[in-house]
Computed example of a mutant assay.
Amino acid sequence: MAARVDSWIWSVRLTKTRAQAAAACRAGHVKVNGERAKPAQPVKPGDEVRVLHGGRERIVEVRELHTKRVGPPVAAEAYVDNSPPPPPREHVAVAAVRDRGAGRPTKRDRRELDELRGVRRD
Results as ranks from 00 to 15, higher is better:
V30T: 03
A78D: 05
V60T: 04
G55D: 06
W10M: 02
A3M: 11
R69N: 02
T106W: 03
K107D: 15
G54F: 09
C25L: 03
S83I: 12
D6K: 04
A23C: 09
R108I: 04
R18I: 08
A22S: 07
E77R: 13
V43N: 02
P85C: 10
H91P: 11
N33P: 09
V97Y: 12
R56V: 05
V97T: 13
Q41N: 11
P86N: 08
G46T: 08
E115P: 11
H53Q: 05
V92I: 13
A37P: 01
R58E: 03
R4M: 13
V70A: 01
C25W: 00
D114N: 15
V60D: 02
R100L: 13
N82Q: 14
A102N: 05
H29C: 04
R26N: 11
I9H: 03
V12Y: 04
Y79A: 04
V119I: 14
D122Q: 13
A75D: 02
R58A: 00
K68S: 14
V62C: 05
A93E: 15
K107Y: 11
K31H: 11
G34R: 04
R63H: 11
K31C: 04
E90R: 12
A3I: 10
R104H: 09
L65N: 05
L14G: 03
V5L: 05
R104F: 08
K16P: 01
E35G: 10
P45V: 12
R56F: 12
V62D: 01
R56M: 06
G71C: 09
E64K: 02
L65A: 10
S7Y: 06
R4Q: 07
D114L: 15
K31I: 03
R100W: 15
P88G: 10
A76L: 15
H53K: 08
V60W: 01
R63A: 08
A75V: 08
V70Y: 02
R111M: 07
G34K: 07
R111W: 03
M1L: 15
K44P: 08
G101M: 04
P86S: 12
E48H: 11
R13S: 03
V70T: 03
R13A: 01
E77N: 13
V12I: 12
G28E: 08
L116P: 09
E35K: 13
L116F: 13
R63L: 06
A37M: 03
K44Q: 14
I59Y: 04
A75G: 08
R120F: 10
S11P: 04
A78P: 06
R69T: 06
P45R: 09
P84E: 09
N33H: 08
A3L: 09
T17F: 01
V51R: 02
E35W: 12
V51K: 04
Q20T: 11
R69A: 07
P84V: 08
